[in-house]
Amino acid sequence: MHATTAPPEPGDTDVDLRGVRDARHDRLFRYALMACALLVLAALLGAAASTAWGGRLAFETFGLRFLWSEAWDAVNGDFGALVPIYGTVVTALIAMTIAVPVSFGIALFLTEVAPNWMRTPIASAIELLAGIPSIIFGMWGLFVFAPFLAEHVEPWVNDHLGAIPGVGALFQGPPLGIGMLTAGIVLAIMIIPYISSVMREVFLTVPTRLKESAYALGSTTWEVVWDIVLPYTRSAVIGGVFLGLGRALGETMAVTFVLGNAHQLSASLLMPSNSIASVIANEFTEAYTDLHRSSLIALGFLLFVVTFVVLAVAKLMLLRLARREGA
Rank of each mutant, 00 (worst) to 15 (best):
164 I>F: 11
284 F>W: 11
219 S>Q: 06
11 G>I: 08
59 F>I: 10
306 V>S: 04
315 K>F: 10
202 V>P: 00
31 Y>M: 11
83 V>W: 04
223 E>D: 12
241 V>D: 00
69 S>C: 10
64 L>Y: 09
43 A>T: 11
78 D>N: 12
192 I>W: 01
97 T>Y: 00
238 I>E: 01
13 T>N: 08
95 A>F: 03
301 F>Q: 05
244 G>C: 06
56 R>L: 14
283 E>N: 13
66 F>R: 03
186 V>E: 08
299 L>H: 02
42 A>G: 10
75 V>N: 07
81 A>L: 03
159 D>T: 12
74 A>N: 05
240 G>I: 06
280 I>V: 15
44 L>C: 13
91 T>Y: 05
253 M>A: 12
91 T>F: 07
114 A>V: 09
237 V>H: 00
116 N>A: 15
55 G>V: 08
288 Y>R: 15
184 G>W: 06
288 Y>V: 14
253 M>C: 02
91 T>D: 05
157 V>G: 01
182 T>R: 02
171 F>W: 13
196 S>I: 01
52 A>T: 12
155 P>T: 09
127 E>V: 02
166 G>Q: 08
231 P>R: 05
294 S>H: 03
205 T>C: 00
106 I>A: 11
57 L>Y: 11
266 S>F: 08
142 L>R: 13
138 G>M: 02
48 A>L: 10
13 T>C: 00
236 A>K: 09
276 I>V: 15
264 Q>T: 15
233 T>G: 07
134 S>L: 04
287 A>T: 07
180 M>I: 13
119 R>H: 01
251 E>F: 05
305 V>G: 07
291 L>M: 09
115 P>F: 11
158 N>L: 02
101 P>D: 11
181 L>D: 03
139 M>S: 04
4 T>H: 14
203 F>A: 01
145 F>M: 08
121 P>R: 11
